[in-house]
Design a protein around this nucleic acid. Structure first.
Length: 499
RNA sequence: GGUUCUGUGGCCGAGUGGCUAGGCAGAGCUCUGCAAAAGCUCGUACAGCGGUUCGAAUCCGCUCGGAACCUCCA
């Protein structure tokens, strides 16, 4: 089996082969830290965390680069150029870098909650102003950019004419052609500096009120939106690297522009495989600031939002994301999230039960069942190889759950399966649930709680033995009001879960 | 308007032309002091209309919905 990924560039699933044997360079567009991350942001970072983990599982050495966009340089509502970050900083009476730091910290906190592996390098735009300026100078020198009033614009039309001949037309990633672009780009203000509507800024002149500004050969200003990714990916991953990822909404114009900038500098397509995740929607609509429908991650974890019926654990969100394919839209809903919460709990409990099985030496009694279980396990790899079909792997896991619980409850003899099958099941469930899917269950309370619960369980067992159901029910019911659920197991044993 | 997608049972969601995932919710049963948990069984869904085919949720066309992008955006 070999890994196949859907490449947005070719619109096909392709067999993945790394440019350098045994090593993978992956660049994922990171957050703009001008505000707190929301549910929508969770998707790419969880998705690419699984991609990252799976590549590691396959034995690759991965350099995973994910940037932090900490320089505001956008146009607000297509009006006058306004540094987003410095504007908000004024309102909040913070230093721009203080604000950026605050949201960077929050982002890291959220990523930690989701149990994502940190990238190998997390470069910031502000830390790479020099690299960006060097790149822009090269683009100007080659004649693909022009300077107007201290700003620098990329000449898309010239680029398209020249690079189409090299098989790299502008629009190759998003499937657009430049002519359509010229017709359909909306009328925007402050565009008179551009020679062409499709042109985009590499460097913007900063008006005096801008706090975030850097000196450049063209005067004080700040970098254009797209140049940081070209500059930083090139610095850390080279002229051509394996995977470039991000949300589908970045495909155009962001990634298209990245390709153009990098192509001018390196004459290569920048990345071999482009992977784009779909959006998280809410009531069928993309979650985004402009739609006024965002649920921040901190709100999600606490349940403190009008649309939320309860708090949701980060692992519930992670599991929810993994239950769908990364290229399908995923609709938020309380019902759906609650379903994921229960499902994950059931899966995890079965996983824990499985880990308690002791493997001995016996002859299997049910070859047919054994074969079925082996098939379900073997498909874990097969499905993930098929463009990271996490949802299908989870479905298989749920098909295994009844067998595991059946063995635990003695409905099914463990001897039905070969000892090696049990062993393999344990191993693969661990690998996929923990190592690749990055799911975990927090141990609540630690050893102290464990000791206390053992005592209470002993007391309850004694009470039950004496048919003192008043006492046994009291222990169970009062613990339940504290959020600790006692479950009676089949052989008179008891277990507990903490809500 | 242009580009690219998409429409699956109460809800969420996999689906490579035939073998009709999975989860949650719901119904019944088993186990059980009761409850919970667990196990077993059960809804035969693919927007509509045509077409291709021995056979289509899956391919093609049209119609009607919906989304993303075209402007900051994960």
């Amino acid at each position: 089996m070999s890994l196949k990924v859907y490449n947005s560039l070719t619109r096909k699933k392709e067999v993945f082969t790394s440019i350098t044997a045994g090593r993978v360079g992956m660049y994922v567009c990171g957050p703009t830290v001008s505000g707190e991350s929301h549910l929508g942001h969770a998707r790419p970072y969880v998705t690419f965390d699984v991609v990252h983990r799976y590549l590691l599982h396959l034995g690759y050495k991965v350099r995973y680069v994910r940037n932090i966009t900490d320089a505001g340089h956008f146009e607000e509502e297509g009006r006058e150029a306004e540094d987003k970050i410095s504007k908000k900083a004024l309102l909040e009476r913070l230093e721009p870098m203080e604000l950026v730091q605050k949201y960077t910290n929050m982002f890291h906190w959220a990523m930690d909650q989701f149990n994502t592996i940190p990238p190998s390098i997390e470069p910031t735009a502000t830390g790479h102003i020099v690299e960006q300026i060097v790149m822009i100078e090269k683009i100007i020198k080659d004649g693909y950019a022009y300077v107007v009033n201290g700003s620098v614009y990329f000449d898309v039309e010239k680029y398209n004419t020249d690079f189409s001949k090299l098989g790299m037309p502008y629009g190759m990633l998003s499937g657009r052609n430049l002519e359509d672009q010229l017709d359909t780009t909306r009328e925007l203000d402050n565009q008179e500096e551009k020679r062409n509507r499709a042109d985009f800024a590499l460097w913007k002149n900063a008006p005096p009120e801008h706090i975030m500004r850097w000196p450049s050969p063209w005067g004080d200003g700040f970098p254009g939106w797209h140049i940081e990714c070209s500059a930083m990916s090139n610095k850390y991953l080279g002229d051509e690297f394996d995977i470039h990822g991000g949300g589908m909404d970045l495909q155009f114009p962001h990634h298209e522009c990245e390709i153009a900038q990098s192509a001018v500098c390196n004459h290569k397509t920048m990345a071999k495989y482009w992977i784009h995740n779909n959006m998280i929607t809410i009531n069928g609509r993309k979650m985004g600031k402009s739609y006024n429908n965002v649920i921040k991650l901190s709100e999600l974890f606490t349940g403190n939002h009008p649309l939320l019926e309860q708090a949701y654990h980060p692992m519930t969100i992670r599991f929810f994301i993994l239950q769908s394919h990364y290229r399908s839209p995923l609709d938020f809903g309380n019902e759906a999230l609650k379903a994921s919460e229960k499902a994950f709990k059931r899966l995890w409990e079965a996983y824990e039960n499985l880990n308690k099985f002791e493997v001995g030496d016996w002859q299997m009694t049910d070859a047919e069942l054994d074969a079925k279980v082996n098939k379900l396990i073997a498909e874990f790899d097969e499905f993930l190889d098929d463009d990271f079909s996490t949802a299908k792997v989870i479905a298989n896991m749920f098909e295994l759950v009844p067998f595991i619980n059946g063995i635990k409850d003695k409905h099914l003899a463990i001897e039905a399966l070969q000892p090696t099958t049990i062993h393999l099941l344990k191993q693969q469930m661990k690998v996929f649930i923990e190592d690749i899917f990055g799911l975990k269950q927090d141990v609540v309370g630690g050893d102290k709680l464990k000791g206390i619960m053992e005592l209470l369980i002993t007391l309850r067992k004694d009470a039950k033995a004496k048919k003192d159901f008043v006492t046994s029910d009291r222990i169970r019911n009062e613990l339940a009001t504290l959020g600790v659920l006692i479950k009676d197991e089949k052989g008179g044993e008891m277990s507990y879960t903490v809500e």
